[in-house]
Structure formats: C-alpha cells, structure tokens
C-alpha cells in the first residue's frame, strides 16, 4: 500500500450485509471475487481506493489513527468508543433501537424495584448514561455476544442490546421494556486526512453519501 492508496473501512456483520448490496454498480462497488476470498483489503471500482473489512468495534480506531481515511460504522459503536473522528453524515440505513429487554413477564417497574439490578450488555457507556438519567443503579455484566442468553440463564435480570426487527428477542421469549436510544450507520472520516486533504476526501465522501443515502 502506498500513501496514494486511499482506504475506506467498511463494517463486517449486520451493517456490512446491508452495505455491500447498496454499493453495487456505484464507483465504490467492492470487487466480488475479492469479497468471496479471505482477503481483508478489497479493491473497489475506483482505482486507488480500497476497502478494509473490519469488526465494528475495531473500525473507529483505524479511522481515528488515519490508517483508513473514511469509514462506515453504527452510531452505537461511536457513542461507546468516543474516538476523535469526524462524523460527516447520518446515512440512515441500519436503523435500530438500543433497548432494555427482559423476559416477557417482567415489566420496567419490576426491574426498577429490584434492590440489586443486574444488566448484561455490550453497551456499558450508554447503559450507565440511561441509569444516571433514570436515577437507578445497577451491576453491569459486560458481554460481547449473545446477550439474549443472560436473562434466560440467570446471569442478569435484563439486557441492554440493539433491536432491529425484534425477531431475535421474540425467538428467546424476551420483550423490549424501554428504549434507551437509536442507532444508524454513520459516515466517519479521519480528522487529519479530511482537514489536510479535503480535495481528495470530500468528493469520495460525497460519492458514498450519494450511493448510500441517495443524495449528494
């Protein structure tokens, strides 16, 4: 890779699954053959621009450090990590709720009344902010995956997790008892790259917004 290669960090997982089809037939379409391989740097339809496929939790760090000049990541991840980067647009897709979820028979009032509330979550910062707003205290149980299991197996009284359609919750007999916030995909940029080379980055950012949001 040379200084002239511009890297865009794209997320793996749920957001990535929505993103890749939206980029098809745009100047930033990802090379299909490379996508099927184990290659982590994917050429795009624009020469000199390549994509990195990264886990959401790692992605902001690559952009903040300037390794990738642009990136797409959920606002929930940005809010948890508080990295120094620019957030150029709310792209709208990947919309979901950050919700407090518990077993179907447990209400929010039940949870409030618990003398020792335990909440399992991948989002401790957002959960602490909500607890503070509500005047509640709780023991946070940090998890990195399959949070739905925690209330079912007694690891926690409830979970704070992202809910898109509610299908996964329903499958596990859980329901949303409160909405803490909302999340969607954001276009982020490395502060240094954007401010020191705006002529290079702004057209690319505009192309991404046009492709993903349908406007320039």
């Amino acid at each position: 890779m040379t200084h002239s290669t511009l890297l865009i960090a794209f997320p793996k997982g749920r957001l990535g699954d929505e993103l890749v089809p939206k980029l098809a037939h745009t100047p930033l379409a990802l090379d299909p053959a490379a996508l099927k391989s184990r290659v982590l740097q994917i050429p795009t339809a624009t020469p000199g621009v390549a994509a990195l496929l990264l886990k959401g939790a790692d992605l902001p760090r690559y952009v903040a450090a300037g390794v990738a000049s642009l990136g797409i990541v959920g606002s929930d991840t940005l809010d948890e990590m508080d990295m120094d980067l620019l957030e150029l647009a709310d792209l709208g897709f990947g919309a979901c709720r950050l919700s407090l979820c518990a077993k179907a028979e447990v209400t929010l009032e039940d949870l409030r009344a618990r003398p020792h509330l335990r909440l399992a979550t991948k989002f401790p910062k957002a959960t602490e902010a909500w607890l503070s707003r509500e005047g509640l205290t709780a023991e946070l149980v940090p998890l990195s995956s399959s949070a739905e299991l925690a209330p079912l197996l007694g690891l926690a009284d409830a979970i704070v997790d992202l809910v898109q359609t509610g299908g996964t919750l329903k499958a596990h007999g859980l329901v949303e008892t409160a909405i803490l916030g909302r999340s969607s995909a954001r276009l982020v940029a490395a502060r240094g790259a954007y401010l020191s080379e705006p002529g290079r980055l702004r057209p690319l950012a505009g192309a991404l917004i046009a492709a993903l949001k349908g406007q320039d």
Binding site: H3, A65, G66, A190, G192, A193, L195, S196, E197
Partner: peptide
C-alpha cells in the same frame, strides 16, 4: 490559525 501539511494526521 491552524497549519496542516497534506497527508499529516495532526495539525
């Protein structure tokens, strides 16, 4: 006032 060089990651 802020001074940058093209490609620099910090002012």
């Amino acid at each position: 006032l802020r001074l940058w060089a093209p490609g620099a990651q910090q002012e």
